[in-house]
Design a protein around this nucleic acid. Structure first.
Lengths: 337, 337
DNA sequence: CTTGGCACTCGGGAACACAGAGTGCTAGGC
DNA sequence: GCCTAGCACTCTGTGTTCCCGAGTGCCAAG
């Protein structure tokens, strides 16, 4: 049905349309790419491609524009991910290496990605769920108040102030701390609830109320952050772009953690570092936009996702290259720290 | 020069223009506000106001539009800050009260302010400079690595991983921790550098290298965050608005911490809770926009600033009311926690 | 000082024509 | 059987013209 040349025509249409933002006609196409056939032949192929739903014309007698289905075919079979230049790679490396803490890593990553792709970049904070406990700290603030600090292997720190039901001496807090640490150190966060279930029973009876309070806050901390923090940058890049939906809708979506979360999608367990590309209407949450995303994190243990959001008319090979590269580098940084 | 009626005309022009977004003519003006004079008289007054530079006409024979100078006079002398409704106040209170930690307080505040004003809201994190040390914690991570945690009276937590020059036993870390806390507890952050200057000398000589390393990181933490974190929300509200400069420029400015910082301006030491209003060209960093900002924080000890950014054509009385109210409530919340 | 009258100006929308790009179709050539 | 050249057709976008109406400034009268 679609021979080699028709595919070449489709590829040429996508490339031209992406770079010029204008419907591409048969004549210009035959000239710019050396297809070695006449415009008339190209027109026949275009008619076939349109018949199959890969391209469409905005109005009679304008050039052709790829449909979502056309972009999909392009991404899946007609294009190759474009690797970054050496200069870009070095720039990424040095820029990310300068980060001082997790906040800084995430912030730098999202800015970098936005700048590299000239799109809106979205980065999810490393999820607690699969990370492990590195340390639990209890800091007495006053007689009846304790600060609970949870440190994970990704460098994330969560803290909560806990109001105790009764005063607790420092030595008893120290004991509790020791018990918590010996029980939880190195464990996956997701397994913490089971591990602490019977903990109060192993304590002296007079410590149990305080321990129960602290534990309930600890569990809350785990649950609350299940739907993770997520940040974006590069909104300025939306200014020029034209979406089929309103700019306002896109900006609103960007400020909704939940929507962003769904846009990034889920990491497939078998191929954690694969790139996910959702094109236009394939995207259920924000039609008219495309999302390129991937998981990142420590080794195979992908902790979170990052990606970019842009108009359907996007340079997919370049964008995919940038997303993949940034994901790799930030994973390295996380592993090293 | 400007009698009562001319001022009334100016006020009417500002109010009408803000609500309709169209140049306002003499006839409509005489009708809508009962000025009890004829359009012709209004025209004479308008001519005088234009002569003085308070209003201008986009083109010959269109209505009049306030100039920056006109808005300035309106804000200073012709309008009253509009208090929020009871329902709004209660909504603010309950919404802010639900915050779990400092991040959450700031996040909720900025969203609230954006929603309330339908503009872009900007909130600076409470500055470290004037806040005080509540606790310093050293957490041994491994033999040669320690996590330094700094907790302030505003609930802010800063953490850094410190690589030690040599292994250090837990008991010696505990001792160092005790020394640090007894020396710094309750002190203003700005005075920390002096306080720790001679600290290594008071320690056993074998602890000094480690102590020096830890202290240098501690000081870095203070300095690094001097230019504070700052967040915004409500970018979607820019979609409808028309600035004299490009939307892209505004969005870019919003993502630059430094620019945001300058936009919010500085809190005057004598009148810390006063509202700052910068109108259009008065604003050196982002012409064509207006900024309404104020300090907030604990009592007279204003810690940081918050405000909104919008088009020059903005409902100043309402916006000022919202900014003032939110600043008060968030100050309360901070004081209580 | 205010008011009604009046001529003037200018922006914006409607109607219109036109050029240019692109198409589909058909007939002829390899 | 596929490719190509030619041709008539169909759009969109742009530039032009025209006209209406809102709004003004000025003047003379109350």
């Amino acid at each position: 049905m679609l021979d080699e040349r028709k595919l070449a025509v489709l590829r040429a249409i996508v490339e031209d349309y992406v770079s010029t933002n204008e419907p591409v006609g048969s004549k210009a196409l035959a000239e710019r790419h050396n297809l070695k056939v006449s415009p008339a032949t190209v027109r026949n192929d275009m008619a076939a491609l349109e018949e199959e739903g890969y391209i469409t014309q905005p109005h009679t007698s304008a050039g052709r524009v790829p449909t979502d289905k056309g972009y999909r075919l392009f991404v899946d079979r007609l294009s190759q991910i474009k690797p970054l230049s050496g200069a870009e790679r070095r720039a990424i490396e040095t820029f990310l290496a300068g980060a001082v803490d997790l906040d800084d890593v995430v912030m730098r990553t999202v800015r970098l990605l936005a700048q590299l792709t000239r799109q809106v970049a979205v980065v999810q904070y490393p999820t607690l769920t699969r990370s492990t406990v590195r340390h639990v700290e209890l800091v007495p603030l006053s007689e009846r108040r304790v600060m609970l600090v949870l440190i994970t292997n990704t460098g994330r720190v969560e803290q909560r102030v806990v109001e105790l039901p009764e005063a607790l001496e420092d030595t008893r807090i120290a004991h509790l701390r020791a018990v918590l640490n010996s029980g939880l150190d190195g464990c996956q966060l997701s397994s913490v609830p089971e591990l602490v279930a019977d903990l109060p029973e192993r304590l002296p009876v007079e410590d149990r109320p305080a321990a129960a309070t602290i534990l309930s806050v600890l569990l809350e901390t785990l649950v609350e952050r299940y739907d993770e923090k997520i940040v974006f940058a590069g909104a300025a890049n939306l200014a020029g772009a034209d979406f089929s939906i309103g700019l306002r809708d896109v900006l609103e979506a960007l400020e909704e953690q939940v929507v962003l979360m769904r846009l990034l999608g889920e990491t497939s367990p078998d191929t954690p570092s694969a790139l996910t590309v959702r094109i236009g209407s394939e995207n259920p949450y924000l039609q008219g936009t495309s999302v390129v995303a991937t998981g990142y994190g420590l080794g195979d243990n992908q902790l979170a996702r990052l990606g970019v959001l842009g108009p359907t008319r996007m340079d997919y090979p370049v964008t995919m290259g940038a997303v993949r590269a940034v994901a790799r580098y930030v994973s390295q940084i996380l592993a090293a720290s």
